Simulated assay, not measured.
Amino acid sequence: MEHRLLNYKSAKVNLDELQDKVVILDFFDTYCSNCIAAMPKLQKLQDKLGDKLQIIVVTWQDSATITKFFRTNQYLKENKVKLPIIVSDTLLSKLIVHKGLPHVAWLYKNKVAAITFADFSKAEHVERLYQEGKIQLPLKNDFESNEPKTALGWNGAIADKGGSVLTGYSDGVPERGFTIYRDTMGYGTYGTIKNTPILAAYISIYTKIRKPKFLLNKERIAWEVADSSKYSYLSDKLSSREWLLEHGICYERKIMRNVDDAEFSKSALEDLNQLLGLDVYWDERIKDCLELKKLPANKVKRQITISDKNNMKSEDKLPVEGTDVLAFVVDMAKKYPPCIDLAKTDIKMEIGQFRTLEELNQQLATYGLVISKGRRAIEVLVVSKK
């Protein structure tokens, strides 16, 4: 079967003609930022292993759209990306069915060798497939059922009598935090965690017990374990997907009666602590922080002038209702210590972009508020060994 190409030695390619090379089909579109960000890496891989490898990126978009995009995208031009592109694809996407992008298919000797994630497009995997004729990479499956396997009778050990099972990474299963299901006949409550880091698993359970009113950034995690890299992705050498292969967990639990989310989640929390030999709980620790306070009445200043207001368009402002939401917005910047709301007011504000706390405080003064550095006891999630 022939496919129309751009950036190739001919306008069409028959994949049968490439069977002596490893062929990587990388499905993308111009709306997928991760797809575009990965293309320089793919180009380097192609340049390095061109005698053994042919990378072809595949899109449903038409030739005119793609030609203009590659001609005008400065990032791709700077990185000299000139990968062959199958455009207006309608056939391959039906043969290699997917929902999420990027989506990667590996072919060799005219056979599909792997359907996997973009993280694994690396030289060592190409060499292994080329030399050995086969390869085992994690399966990317966009159509895994969300139903708990216990409910379908997959795990007979707990389907009929209840209990729990903890395993490692499960191939072909999409990541999913703690999810609760109930038997429609009233015979039990099920909970599942799929291919999730241990810390993320605990957080997803806790959100069903008590949702925090702040962003749970790294300063709010108190590690009391020998090696925190086993529990949360902190690697600068592996992609998150590669790390998950070794450290991700799957968990299933069933109680033989219908209970509410909070009760079931508490039982799952105790169960996971027991299975992993951990104690994960909320506590307070003394930490550097930002304190959001009300200004004293005699210090309130209106520092935004009429001209400032005219220069700041309404669409450039973020409507914020309450100081608790403002503290969350500051935490979202990920540039500062945790922001603690001491003002506790539901005042409505409009906050423009800010690069520094000084710029933010100029805006907050209008509302009688100020943010300053402090140190106090704040809520943290403690992760400790039993």
Rank of each mutant, 00 (worst) to 15 (best):
E2P: 10
E2H: 14
R4I: 07
Y8L: 02
K12T: 12
Q19N: 12
Q19R: 11
K21P: 04
F28D: 01
L42W: 13
Q43N: 05
Q43I: 04
Q43T: 04
K44S: 14
D47V: 09
K52R: 11
V58M: 05
T59D: 03
S63L: 00
A64P: 01
A64M: 03
T67N: 01
R71F: 03
T72E: 12
N73D: 02
Q74F: 13
Y75E: 02
Y75R: 05
V81P: 01
P84W: 04
V87M: 03
V87W: 10
L92M: 11
V97G: 05
G100A: 10
L107D: 01
V112M: 14
A113G: 09
F117G: 11
F117Y: 15
F120M: 02
S121Q: 12
E124A: 14
G133W: 09
K134M: 13
I135P: 03
N146F: 12
W154V: 14
N155L: 14
A159Y: 06
K161T: 01
G162P: 08
S164T: 11
L166H: 03
G168Y: 02
G177S: 05
T179I: 02
R182Q: 14
G188N: 03
Y190E: 03
Y190L: 04
I193P: 04
T196S: 09
T196F: 08
P197C: 08
P197R: 06
A201C: 05
I203D: 00
S204K: 00
K213R: 14
K213F: 14
K213C: 10
L216D: 00
E219W: 15
E219M: 14
I221K: 08
V225Q: 01
A226K: 13
A226Q: 10
S229P: 13
Y233A: 07
Y233M: 07
L234Q: 13
K237I: 11
L244A: 13
L244G: 08
G248K: 06
G248C: 12
Y251D: 04
Y251T: 04
E252A: 15
M256R: 09
A262C: 01
E263S: 05
F264C: 01
A268G: 02
D271Q: 12
G277D: 12
D279W: 11
V280M: 12
R285K: 15
L292A: 11
K294G: 07
L295G: 07
L295V: 09
P296W: 06
A297L: 15
A297F: 14
N310R: 11
N311P: 00
M312N: 01
K313L: 06
K317H: 00
E321I: 11
A327W: 07
A327V: 09
P337A: 15
P337S: 15
A343V: 11
R355L: 13
R355M: 10
I371Q: 03
I371Y: 03
G374V: 10
R375C: 15
R376K: 15
V380A: 10
V382M: 10
K385G: 12
K386D: 04
